[in-house]
Design a protein around this nucleic acid. Sequence first.
RNA 1: GGGGGCGUGGUCUAGUGGUCUAGGAUGCCUGCCUGUCACGCAGGAGGUCGCGAGUUCGAACCUCGUCGCCCCCGCCA
Length: 591
Amino acid sequence: MSELTRTHNLQEIIDAPIGTEATLMGWVARRRDLGQLIFITLRDRWAELQCTLDPEESPESHAVASECRGEYVVAFTGVTRARPEKEQREGPGGDREFIVQSAEILSRAETTPFVIEEEVKASEELRLKHRYIDLRRRTMVRNITVRHQVVRIIREYLYEQGFLEIETPLLANTTPEGARDYVVPSRVHPGSFYALPQSPQLFKQVLMCSGMDRYFQIAKCLRDEDLRGNRQPEHTQLDLEMSFTSREQLFGIAEGYMQRIWRECIGHELPVPFPRVPYNEAIERWGSDKPDARFGSEIRELTALWQGTEAAFVTAGLEEGQVVHGVFIPGLSLSRKELDSWTEKAKRYGANGLMTIETGGEEPKGSVARFAPDLQAFAALAAECESSSTGTWCMVLGPKPKNLKVLGELRLKLGEEAGLIDHTQFAPMWVVDFPLYEVNEETGGVTAAHHAFTNPLAADMHKLDSTDIDELLSIRADNYDLVLNGVEMSSGSLRVFDPALQMRILRNMGLSDEQIEHRFGWFLEAYRYGAPPHRGFGQGIDRLVMSLLGVDNIREVIAFPKTATAQCPLTGAPATIEQDQWWELRLQPLK
RNA sequence: GGGGGCGUGGUCUAGUGGUCUAGGAUGCCUGCCUGUCACGCAGGAGGUCGCGAGUUCGAACCUCGUCGCCCCCGCCA
């Protein structure tokens, strides 16, 4: 092979003055052989450029180009020239071509398993099996590049703010709660196992006890649970923790880098501060702790509008103390068949049925329009909520919590159906003050809703010693989720830094002092030698990049993702191990 | 753990019991072509219809099992 050196990448030669001499290297994206003239579209990570091989210019190069096939790696030496007037094209490099004076094939390529094109037709499985080929596609280059930019911006921003980037172990201990752990057998200690961290939670809190003050890490988090379109067994998280700081200061940090990311990556200005919405209010208004606020149609209580109705089932429900809630979907009009399908959906979410009233039309329509005591009132309320009275009220009758849950789900689907969601918009919000505890279905007692190290809200601290389950469940935590377009982006809290308070919370969860000592002893001890108040959060990087790029599959923003069954089609992982490895680890598979 | 969808030349797909000797597009190979840019034109090669069993005179097509992929619920920060 020759001693050629690349002088320019394709973006550099496109940006250079016409007439620049260069040696280019890249992949043959396309070859157009006109018999005499041959055009080769060269591709690298940066760009694509048309290279012209004219036998009158260089017979040798032309001969080499005749041999070139798709995905051959070539080196071209020559000079850029302005394209003839009529041959100019829109887009980067469309004004020029590269006249090749000397050509060399650096590497030949077999026919690829699928065609490299933007609108990729190959199955995802095949793309993953040959991911190195898939990653040559412009969209994948863009996704991976934007991901890089996101991480770079986060790092730069946090360095400016005085954060220390500190690594924590991957070989750690099993976490007492949460998801299933990935475990790693210890050869040195047969029968003992490390667990791969579900997050660096305990380490980062202990780092605060060390006085590290402002910590962050771009950390891999691992959990052995079933996968989804936006879940992978290993995902990347911005893990962050700060001492001596208020909630507002912490929000300012997150808003700072979010704003910078959106501005620099896609030129979109996110207004700060993001709205702060208490958990209880989010549930009331959107029926969800992660509301999609890109559209209105918030949930309204409509019980009053049903007083005096002739519909027996409604009257009966109201007498039992049930209530009516609804969402108004502007522009929505349901056929008989569509209504049945939506009713089916509502029932799947737990409702007894779906009541609709279509307003704004000539005739009153909808499944319960004829029972409405005052149709005008529905139209008027619609106009007040959505500044339009043309559309459909979708209502459910039942206990309030169930109504809110059902409508929370329906609202999203109906909003999508009615085209109310502007997919170019971003609606971030902080949802704050979640319940500290939730009911533990197995024991009937309470367990930590988020994790056991979340500090209660100061105003609710006095309820901690209550023996009443409902009282305990009403305790709010000093925690917060960053929600964007209905997706949870990050989650964090003020941590318990008083060992005595931590004990009370763990005891409320039904743990004995022995269990607490065994599971969290080392951690609680760290808080006995001078612990600062501190708070932090973890932010999912994969989901952030998905949202930024508007893609709905997490695999599109990860270079080497796993399949839905947690396998890697490229490497074949996970795989069996050799007999001597079993032996060395003192393990054997169960029959 | 449960439910649903898919599996046909390299790739994407048509085909719902006999018309299939499996069609198309794209890719690949050969030839022709000096301004193409999804180049064009002509010709050619390429298939265990995921795998196994069954039903049937006859199966890409129906049934059962199995494997793989995707989506949803459970689960999961």
